[in-house]
Design a protein around this nucleic acid. Sequence first.
DNA 1: GTAAATGCAAATTGTTTGCTTACTG
DNA 2: CAGTAAGCAAACAATTTGCATTTAC
Lengths: 141, 141
Amino acid sequence: MEAKRPKRMTKQRKIILEELRKLTSHPTADELYEIVRARLPRVSLGTVYRNLEVLSEQGDILKLESAGSQKRFDGNPEPHYHIRCVQCGRVGDVEHDGEVVLPSMEHFHCEGFTIHSQSLEFYGLCADCQEKLEAREAVGL
Amino acid sequence: MEAKRPKRMTKQRKIILEELRKLTSHPTADELYEIVRARLPRVSLGTVYRNLEVLSEQGDILKLESAGSQKRFDGNPEPHYHIRCVQCGRVGDVEHDGEVVLPSMEHFHCEGFTIHSQSLEFYGLCADCQEKLEAREAVGL
DNA sequence: GTAAATGCAAATTGTTTGCTTACTG
DNA sequence: CAGTAAGCAAACAATTTGCATTTAC
């Protein structure tokens, strides 16, 4: 049994992580690519994808796959709740007052699956989409 | 303001819905396409996609989205909980004993978003992936 | 020095769309 | 018989991969 070789902290990986940590916007890979390009003009989109994968495997960031067409990434690896705009796919962090008590996992079961975790997910509209919707309604749909 | 024209119940749409209703496996569009082809050899994958879209808009089925991977479809449109295999993406229905009480939505808030709904989602491993994992562990990873 | 990671481009995968023809209501 | 929907193929979008070269350790 061989030891797992260590991952290298390349300049690219470091900058990708730094830039993602600065954001609270849960960017997609290509959004982050555009940002990282300001500091690394020759970086490739493939490198961004590869690094986001490695960083999320290592638990340094979160990969959000819940819905929408593109994956989004969160520089804050601490478990927390997310809301997704059902219109455009944008993701936000959800705050809560007091402690959140989820129903105990023992009460749930599923034939053919081993349940490992559960999460509460929120859906709604982001301010932009909310605004667009109201503008359209004002005209009479 | 015009009335919405009714959707036609074509042979294809009917069979796609019937076959999806028979399944509890939450198939992907191409899995369902293969099944439907047994009854409609000349059906196209595009037709399956278009119909799954229409049927989910009408609330006849559920569209289960997961970013970056394949959409899955559920012939049971009643709200219920799902588990997703973190390895292969397969989806199962989660049963529960007693009533499920989720934390009240008033305790959650998110700057820049209007929260409309919340849902509990489960993650784990399907029997196949669990088995493969155990086989690999037995050899010493 | 060596394996891991990069940049680049091409390949894959899942899904959508344009267009002509067929068929439902 | 009007217009929705089908079939087919080509287009698209997001992500992944192969390979020669560079770089971290």
